[in-house]
Write a protein that binds this DNA or RNA. Sequence first.
DNA 1: AACGCAATGTAGCATTCGCTACAATAGCCT
DNA 2: AGGCTATTGTAGCGAATGCTACATTGCGTT
Lengths: 194, 194
Amino acid sequence: MSDPPSDPSPRSPAKAGLSRETLLPLLASHVLKHGLGGASLRPLAKAAGTSDRMLIYHFGNKEQLIIDLLEYIAGIYAAALEAALGSERAATRQECLARILAEGRTPAMQSFLVLWWEIVAGSARGLPGYREAAEQMMTKQLAWLETQMPADDPDPAAGARYLMTLLEGTLMLGAVGHARTAREGLLASGLSDA
Amino acid sequence: MSDPPSDPSPRSPAKAGLSRETLLPLLASHVLKHGLGGASLRPLAKAAGTSDRMLIYHFGNKEQLIIDLLEYIAGIYAAALEAALGSERAATRQECLARILAEGRTPAMQSFLVLWWEIVAGSARGLPGYREAAEQMMTKQLAWLETQMPADDPDPAAGARYLMTLLEGTLMLGAVGHARTAREGLLASGLSDA
DNA sequence: AACGCAATGTAGCATTCGCTACAATAGCCT
DNA sequence: AGGCTATTGTAGCGAATGCTACATTGCGTT
């Protein structure tokens, strides 16, 4: 018995060392390093400095924990985007794409990317929570991409969608060892000079 | 003791109901339906009409089973591509892309796609066998795509790489509920009219 | 002081996991 | 025939899984 609080009002936090909010960052950093698929309660708990017992206590069950965690990760991804590049726009679509791809080569973003493909796979298979998180992350990225488009772009919204499609294709090819293929493809499209 | 045969010469097949070759198609159809990540020996064995005991006997251990299975799946994917569309070339790049995307909406290809994202995720994380299978599948698809390019295309090889990048981006966006984004992106690129 | 309840620890349960030990069957080769 | 070996079945092991039962602590309220 004794469900998790579910009431965010801290009526009487007793000892109150851990809560969903303090746990989530630690859990997120663990799955960023070790992946979502193979994540089981006891290792997760250890990474967060608690016990599996408490994870179940705070989240109800593992499925809900994953759902909450995905939502949290989508949030910090959005925050990372905000912080990644300032509000400076690129001069051309080509430069815009190049910048973002360079950003994707950052070690910090690499961790995200590896996790990202797991989220895509979960979304494609219909696992609970994955689709929502993935959709949210993509929506955020699309909006951010629009702000990065050249100021004189004829159609920034459509251009962002186009660049987004190319970008994701490039990232996927990179994930399977075909970065070269994508590079040559972009080169042929006139959207790259590397 | 008594390793698996490892010698393809059928010196004395005793009862010989099952072998790597007869097992793999059944295993493949199981993972196509239920996924690779959650695949464990006993369900796999049941799907193939054997026991976990025999799977280990024939493949050595689970990791090798997955590796062999991925290689086999890459093979049947290649075969599916061969059979998918005849040798008719498209008239324009636009039509070429449209055809392939239509093919991707086939139920049979849907199963492949869902599995595909798991393979991408495994490849990105460096799981043994995944990278090789993914790379092989992409190489095959790229070669096939080249044969589908318009006959009068100025640069079929580069065009195929470009279409490939767009195609994979489109598929990924579709997997996460952003099919609309990709469609509008393609529209803006002049490579779609839908 | 007495009570209530949130928060946490300790043990454990039932199931599944990959894999192994041991034994049985059955065909081939000499 | 006798033996070798490939193949298969039956049991089970030790670990890990998600989750629960039960007990305890300690603060806030009355």
